[in-house]
Design a protein around this nucleic acid. Sequence first.
DNA 1: AATAGCCAGTT
DNA 2: AACTGGC
Length: 333
Amino acid sequence: MSKRKNPSDNNNLNADFCEFLMELSDYEKNVSRNIHKFNAYKKAASVLASHSKRIQSGEEAKKLNGIGEKISKKIDEFLNTGKLKKLDDIHNDENAQIISLLTRVSGIGPVKAADLLNMGIKSIEDLRNNKNKLNHHQIIGLKYFEDFEKMIPRSEVRELENVITKEIKNLDPQFTITICGSYRRGRSESGDIDAQVTHPTLKLGDNKNKCHEKLLKNIIMALKGCITDVISMGETKFMGVCRLSNNHPFRRLDIRLIPKEQYYCAVLYFTGSDVFNKNMRSHALEKSFTLNEYSLRPIGVTGIPGEPVQIESEEEIFDYIDYPYQKPEERNM
DNA sequence: AATAGCCAGTT
DNA sequence: AACTGGC
């Protein structure tokens, strides 16, 4: 997933509240480094975004799950004054603004940003003059700072999908490739490209003989026409940069090699959305199953998960837990 | 009390 | 090997 904020829902009646809550959420993550406040603001924004009525008061908002006393008061302040003192203070805090800027570079998180600020680095230009203070990932993030903030039109993801699929199939037609993320959910634009790849011979136990250590490397080699940089490269996961043509921006590309028996759980998981996954996982629990990116396992009376259920398609996962099948386009929540 | 595991880099 | 930072 990318660093970019989720695009705001176009029929969100509470979009103005969501906007300030998301801004507070970013501040808590990047500047205060309080992950729990970050999650709390995000949850509040998300419940307001999916609320079908315009909220008229803090009191009304408080009835929603995830909105308590503090956020309720902020909604009242915003309704009464059109702004938030806390947010104004943040906007006037030069250091907070610098940290927020630096964390927009891929590879720079809250800790590194504070560290850089301590060393007197206050702008993207300062970063460009101090590349020696950055690791490989951060240098790539800086190099493509502007491009990585651009959304990718669906048509471009589709073209990249065609190129990637063609080159990998050319290596071996038995490969299966699925571009997941928001693209698979039918969105008109995406933040990055998230490809899952499997092969009939790619079995779980094979990790030992390391036969697929080379497999991912071969795939990356086959894609050298569009891959321009490697951020990281392990046995199962590639993170890097690709470009469709000289006329296109550079795009973030992740490729995962998944064993066959985990493929559909992985495709389901990486298609999201986050909220959909959470809902589906909790439904699975009600049906005494535990679901993650690797497997679906029944939970016995002892409470201990059993052996993974054998899965041959995404639909089967829904069937097993008696959850109505939802097409990827219906999972945008 | 609050999603989780992979990868890179450091100690 | 354990830990940190980022995704």
